Measured scan of single mutants.
Amino acid sequence: GPMASDKRPRTAFTAEQLQRLKAEFQTNRYLTEQRRQSLAQELGLNESQIKIWFQNKRAK
């Protein structure tokens, strides 16, 4: 629909990254900035991508 703007492409996470994020989520529903930074480095992701993933996951 018209609401779907092309400005922010959805990140396609790899299965491996998703597995890691899910495991982290089961341990911590809320990430500290430090955890998020190390996860971002570990997974080669953007911190904001991880932050948003957690927000979306909590919203469900």
Rank of each mutant, 00 (worst) to 15 (best):
Q41D: 08
T11N: 12
I52A: 12
F25V: 03
A4Q: 15
K60R: 09
K51I: 13
Q17Y: 01
A15K: 11
F13A: 02
T32F: 02
L21D: 00
T27L: 13
T11M: 10
R20N: 02
P9S: 05
E42F: 03
Q55R: 14
A15Q: 11
L39F: 03
W53R: 00
Q19F: 09
G1A: 04
A23M: 09
E24F: 03
L43F: 04
T27P: 01
L45V: 10
I50K: 01
L39V: 03
Q19D: 09
Q37Y: 11
F13R: 01
E16T: 09
E33Q: 14
R29Q: 11
R29S: 06
Q55D: 07
L18Q: 06
T32K: 04
L21R: 00
E24L: 04
W53H: 01
Q49C: 11
N56S: 09
A40R: 01
R36W: 06
E47W: 03
F25I: 03
F25G: 01
I50R: 01
R10E: 15
L39C: 01
L43K: 00
T11A: 10
F13Y: 07
T27S: 13
A4C: 15
L31E: 05
S48A: 10
E33R: 14
S5G: 12
I50Q: 00
R29W: 07
R58Q: 06
E33P: 15
R29T: 04
L39W: 01
G44H: 06
Q34Y: 11
P9C: 14
Q26K: 12
E42V: 05
I50L: 06
A59P: 04
Q55Y: 14
L39H: 00
Q26P: 01
N56L: 13
R8L: 15
G1L: 05
L39P: 00
L21Y: 00
L39I: 06
L21P: 00
E42L: 06
R58G: 05
A15V: 11
A40G: 04
N56A: 12
D6S: 06
R35M: 10
Q41C: 06
L43R: 00
T27A: 10
R36T: 11
E42C: 04
Q49G: 03
Q55K: 15
Q26I: 10
Q26R: 13
K51E: 14
Q34K: 12
A40D: 00
T27M: 14
L18W: 05
Q37V: 09
E24A: 06
R35F: 05
Q17I: 08
K7D: 15
E47L: 04
N46G: 09
R58S: 06
A4M: 06
S5R: 02
Q41H: 09
M3Y: 02
F54T: 00
G1H: 04
P2I: 07
P2Q: 15
A59L: 11
I50V: 08
L43P: 00
E47N: 04
R58V: 07
E16N: 08
E24Y: 03
M3N: 15
Q49Y: 10
L43G: 00
K51T: 13
L31P: 13
Q37C: 06
R35A: 08
F25E: 01
N46Y: 08
N56T: 11
Q34D: 10
K51V: 11
D6I: 04
Q55H: 11
R29P: 13
Q49M: 10
E33M: 14
T27E: 13
A12L: 13
F13I: 05
S48L: 12
A15P: 10
Q34W: 07
D6E: 08
Q34T: 13
Q41Y: 10
K7L: 12
R36P: 02
R10I: 15
N28G: 05
D6R: 03
Q49R: 09
W53G: 00
D6H: 03
A23D: 10
T14L: 03
A23Q: 13
T14Q: 03
E16V: 09
F13N: 01
K7M: 11
N46K: 11
Q49H: 07
T11R: 13
E33G: 10
Q55E: 08
T27D: 09
T14P: 02
S5I: 03
S48Y: 13
L18H: 06
L18A: 05
E33D: 12
F25M: 02
E42K: 03
L39D: 00
T32Q: 04
Q17C: 03
S48P: 04
S5C: 14
A59F: 08
L39R: 00
Q55S: 11
E16C: 08
K60N: 07
K22R: 12
T14W: 02
A40Y: 01
L45K: 02
Q19L: 12
T11K: 13
A4N: 12
F54G: 01
L21F: 02
S38Y: 10
T27C: 13
Q19P: 01
Q26G: 06
N28E: 04
Q34S: 13
L18V: 08
Q34N: 08
S5F: 01
S48K: 10
K60P: 05
R8P: 15
F54W: 12
S48T: 12
A15W: 10
E16Y: 13
L39E: 00
A23S: 09
M3R: 15
K22I: 12
E24H: 02
Q41P: 01
N28R: 06
M3I: 15
K60G: 08
Q17P: 00
N46I: 07
F25T: 01
F25D: 00
D6P: 05
K22G: 07
K57D: 02
L39N: 00
Q49L: 12
R10L: 14
I50H: 00
Q26T: 11
T14V: 02
R36M: 11
E47G: 06
R58Y: 06
F54Q: 01
Q17K: 04
W53A: 02
L43M: 06
M3W: 01
S5N: 09
L21G: 00
W53K: 00
E24M: 03
Q34F: 09
K51F: 13
R36C: 09
R10Q: 14
K57M: 14
R8G: 15
A40V: 04
R8A: 15
L39T: 00
F25L: 03
R35I: 05
R10D: 15
G44F: 04
A40T: 03
R8Q: 15
Q41W: 07
G44S: 07
S38C: 08
L39K: 00
N46V: 07
R35N: 06
G44N: 11
E24N: 02
T11I: 10
K60W: 04
N56Q: 13
L45G: 01
R10S: 15
F25W: 06
A12K: 14
Y30V: 09
R8T: 15
